[in-house]
Design a protein around this nucleic acid. Structure first.
Lengths: 419, 419
DNA sequence: TGATTTATTTCGGCGTCCAAAAAAATGTTG
DNA sequence: CAACATTTTTTTGGACGCCGAAATAAATCA
């Protein structure tokens, strides 16, 4: 259904548009801002004037503006987001620890704070308070006033229920249904949201290249499990309950090998690190515990063995690729994306799986569909997850908080060091 | 990205809102329209006044208004869509023929026109012109001026490319890439769009019960193939290129039985009518041509045999259910819908497949996900497809054509008989 | 110094929504 | 049956948004 529209909506939307345009297309003169947004110069003057008064954006002093060329006519005064307008925080949760990244309104980040934390052992109710405590401590250390942090975004591998604000299930935890949003909001009084790793990578990709990824793209995250972020019509889709899709637990073969989730034959049970390791080990006749996290060093060893000609190891990767290929074929049959992106640490072994993935696609997918899908692997860096989380968080501020222009949304603060 | 907003957008959106509200909540007095839409009485007066002037809606004469209760105060004058404002046409394509349903702006339909047509034999380039000819003839017969038809919606089972306006592939045709939109627009000068059967059923479901189906729902169409319509966040999703999802050609088992598409092991190859018939026949040792359409009578016979205790027939249905169940499990793992709806003629045999579907879901899906999905079968009637197509077509008029309020959008006409 | 060029602001107009007042149309009541 | 009450609808005037055009600002060029 449509929604009621009024002049309030118009201003909100256009304010949001101006903020987003400045965020993604750098400092811009009012005239360029007008061209980019389609708004008239008069409107731009009005909107930017307000935003300046509110301290959300500011002009760049001509002395500081390096890119100023000497041209005829009145020189442009370029506008840019005011870094000091607010702060945000991105939290990434990994198997071995948690990373806090503080950033200002312009998106400039402080040095990441890496916390060692035995996530696998921590209890359901200790996690949130523990993180809240760390945030308080490190914000203080960095000279960031808590009140200046307007929003926190959390990313985690596994099933994040963004409505309940919980980690329903994650390979990083033994506990389930771990509340995150509620304790952080209660203890810190800062709005907070939680999302899935793969979705955050998808956010980062959209921001990197909207033309390329902005249509319909499937982002497959390979790591201690297999995750999926779906971009549908330019927007990250996150199922009912805000839960991300559970691509890793899509069944491949009825009654296949045991998966972490307790079912048999899930895609993950073949293609995640532990699936690959098990296939390599089984044939050597050893036992295997699917729940034990696999150290990266062991995976690397296995990769080297496969590359060195160890056929047992190689076959494990080939099989992982085959199953992943069929999973992707099914995904394509369902969603018909324009592009499939592989990301995450598991892509390091892509060279070992490439052929079997391709072969599985050939066997499992109508030619008609296959030919319309572009394939790519993005090199893995944890920063993509952080970047995506920050972007998502800042967009929320741009669109839903600052766009409204209500007083009291903005907290001026000082004592911040330049990031 | 956000889009520029201005007062034009506001009026367009609110006009559309008023039209949609009247369409779905029957005749309404201005005051109720205000409550429903959230718009002020003053705005409603203004907007409805314009719409009346344009002939899109009109007041109901108090004599005709049956529901008028005698209350204190100025009596309400209720508003309703003006049926005579325009006409639309919904076309459904089946294996054995084509159905034309003419309707007026209020959605009231004329008697369906059923055309026998050997779709399976017709050539790629003959289909469009043939249909155009039939439309012209039957519109005349019904006393509907061609110029009064403002839009045509076409629904077909199979892969409909709504961008190109072609039937990429359909079990109803031997030909491929059959142009539909272009010839109709060229020969009749009426805007036209084409979509997939299952998507149109999804549209009908949303309109029936927005609360129930308006979130995230997967509609599975079972017939001469297996189709899928996805409702994501209340809107029907239709992949890249506007192509619907190809659930039927999602691989079930690598190297399984031959499918119509030429691959092996697609879901359809087990669970569509021809898959079931083949399983029943193979065991009797006869040959089988996957491309031959299966008459409904033969399917009914097989169903009766299965119900009567014929184990070969029964096993075919059980196996079809099992594979369908795994397909649904995979679908749920990917999309995490709140609701899965089975529709189409194939659901007649649901009783035979029910247990094996459930068993497959149990084996192929994490409990966590399974418990959050509601399941239902809707009784099949072809009218759902027609209804959905009409609704989709009329919504397009409400939102994108008449909402703009441009002159010349509306063609007054006469000679129409009441539907 | 004055012409030219380009960016930004100001001004007046227009379209929209809305709150409040007015008008309309009917029922109620003494 | 006339005055009052009640409810719906319209009118009026104001606010706020965007926009085009004109004015202004600030530079270069000649």
């Amino acid at each position: 259904m449509l929604k009621k529209a009024n002049s309030d909506l118009v201003r909100r939307q256009n304010r949001g548009l101006v903020l987003e345009t400045l965020r993604h297309h750098g400092p811009l003169a009012r005239i360029s801002l007008g061209h980019q947004t389609g708004l008239s110069p008069a409107s731009i003057t009005s909107i930017s004037g307000q935003l300046i008064d509110e301290g959300l954006i500011h002009t760049i002093a001509e002395d500081d503006d390096v890119s100023a060329e000497t041209k005829r006519g009145r020189p442009q005064t370029r506008l840019t987001l005011n870094p000091g307008a607010t702060n945000v925080l991105a939290i990434s949760i990994y198997v071995d620890g948690v990373e806090l990244v503080f950033a200002d309104f312009s998106g400039a980040t402080h040095e990441p704070v890496k916390l060692r934390l035995d996530t696998y052992a921590i209890s359901k109710d200790d996690f949130g308070p523990r993180i809240a405590h760390e945030i308080r401590a490190h914000a203080k250390k960095l000279g960031i006033a808590l009140a200046s942090i307007k929003r926190i975004g959390v990313a985690v591998q596994g099933v994040a229920d963004s409505i309940k604000g919980e980690i329903s299930w994650s390979p990083a935890f033994r506990a389930r249904d771990i509340p995150v949003v509620e304790p952080l909001q209660r203890l810190l009084d800062i709005p907070c949201s939680i999302a899935n790793n793969a979705n955050m990578i998808a956010e980062a990709l959209i921001a990197t290249d909207r033309k390329r990824y902005g249509g319909t793209t499937a982002v497959i995250f390979m790591g201690h499990g297999i995750g999926l972020g779906l971009i549908l019509d330019g927007t990250v889709y996150s199922g009912t309950n805000g839960r991300a899709a559970e691509f890793g637990h899509m069944n491949h073969i009825p009654d296949g090998p045991l998966c972490r989730c307790g079912r048999h034959g899930c895609l993950e049970a073949f293609s995640a690190d532990y699936g690959i390791m098990r296939m390599a080990n089984d044939r050597r006749g050893t036992d295997f515990d699917v729940h034990a996290p696999i150290p990266d060093s062991e995976m690397r060893e296995l990769e080297l063995a496969a590359e060195g000609g160890d056929t047992v190891a190689l076959n494990a990767f080939l099989r992982a690729g085959e199953v992943l290929g069929f999973g992707i074929a099914r995904l394509i049959a369902l969603i018909n994306p324009q592009r499939v992106v592989l990301a995450g640490p598991g892509t390091r072994a892509y060279g070992l799986m490439k052929d079997s993935i391709g072969e599985a696609l050939r066997r499992g997918l109508v030619h008609d569909l296959r030919k319309n899908v572009e394939f790519e692997v993005v090199p893995y860096g944890k920063d993509m997850i952080t970047t995506g989380t920050l972007l998502e968080t800042l967009r929320h501020l741009d669109r839903d908080v600052f766009a409204s222009g209500q007083k009291g949304m903005l907290v001026e603060f000082s004592g911040r060091k330049s990031a």
